[in-house]
Design a protein around this nucleic acid. Structure first.
Lengths: 186, 186
DNA sequence: TGGTAAACGAACAGACTTGTCTATTTTATT
DNA sequence: AATAAAATAGACAAGTCTGTTCGTTTACCA
């Protein structure tokens, strides 16, 4: 295409990123995606063989974008404690930016059936990486209680989506800070 | 009805409780509900004016059933600490029983649009009650850190659904037990 | 036993779903 | 300038969705 700065395949993915996250996977139809992307239906099925395939590409793309943004926050500091607290600031930021729509992956998880193993695998993969992200920040031999950070981080995301409010992020962040002071996390 | 032990209205709700929870709200159609319930479509719309209305009744019913089961576990003990740890045993139990399908309310949350305010209100109401349930177990003047229990409880539910495994429940329970020992919670 | 209400099966409306196909135009490359 | 690939619009298939409206049958109660 000459007159469009972005290729159809990329426009489709951009639109899917926006609509799947905002409206949900089931609530978003192929027809809305192609009309919003300004693309022919045949073009969508040329690049993605099914809606599920597009769903998987959506999760893969989201994984990249989400982690890149998280790292913009955590890379500001060198100390483990500061890095981890910065992760909660990121949640604060993304809640504002995306109007408390919560986690793309957990939202997808609620919608899929047990047969859709490829989607589940993408979701599990993302969360495993997040869990390891926290684990790697802390000194190896002292990481026995790092999963509590992961668990508090996850509920901060879900509960702020639920209450459309930042208080769960603030509470979780404060709790993690307290656990550092108590040396439960080191 | 004479030959059916349960009334149509109740059969519809029973079926909705099962299918909405197992498959999700959008993935479950009215037609499957009426055929599984063995009820005419006209009967469904006689008792419930829309699918959304049935969805609200589903959440209301789930609220009753879920809390009743939770209390079966927590009422076994009198001490606050034991009561709270028993709540995590309940999670363990319901995960087995329902094959890691997670929280009905959070699953619904992921599916609804921001316009569906009645459904959102039902979900918020349930979670507010759960939050207060934990708060009321602990002595009034010492409840400053009880929300960490709520947050860990919530992520235990979500993460065990995600990984189809009980480890998040065990980790969260252990963390809460540790926080009691550290007197972060009293 | 007659009347009222509930439940029934089944058709129907109208809009929506994913996905396929065709015939045509545009774009990029050689 | 010619050729091959990409993208287009739009019709179409076959099925699903929610919700309404029939006329009929069943059940309960006075």
């Amino acid at each position: 295409m000459k007159h469009h700065p972005i290729l159809p395949k990329e426009r489709i993915l951009e639109t899917a990123l926006h609509l799947f996250h905002k409206q949900g996977y089931h609530a978003t139809g192929i027809n809305q995606i192609i009309s919003d992307a300004g693309v022919a239906k045949a073009s969508l099925y040329l690049h993605y063989k099914s809606k599920e395939e597009l769903g998987i590409e959506y999760l893969n793309a989201r994984q990249e974008i989400w982690f890149a943004q998280l790292k913009l926050f955590t890379d500001e500091s060198k100390k483990p404690k500061k890095k981890i607290l910065a992760a909660f600031d990121f949640l604060n930021f993304i809640n504002e930016k995306e109007s408390f729509r919560g986690c793309s992956f957990l939202n997808m998880l609620s919608e899929i059936q047990s047969e859709e193993t490829r989607l589940l695998a993408s979701i599990q993969n993302h969360k495993t990486q997040l869990r390891e992200f926290f684990r790697e920040i802390l000194p190896e031999e002292k990481g026995e209680h790092t999963d509590i950070i992961y668990l508090l981080f996850e509920s901060a995301m879900t509960e702020s989506q639920l209450f459309k409010n930042q208080w769960p992020v603030e509470k979780a962040k404060q709790a993690v800070a307290d656990l550092f002071k108590l040396k439960y996390i080191k």
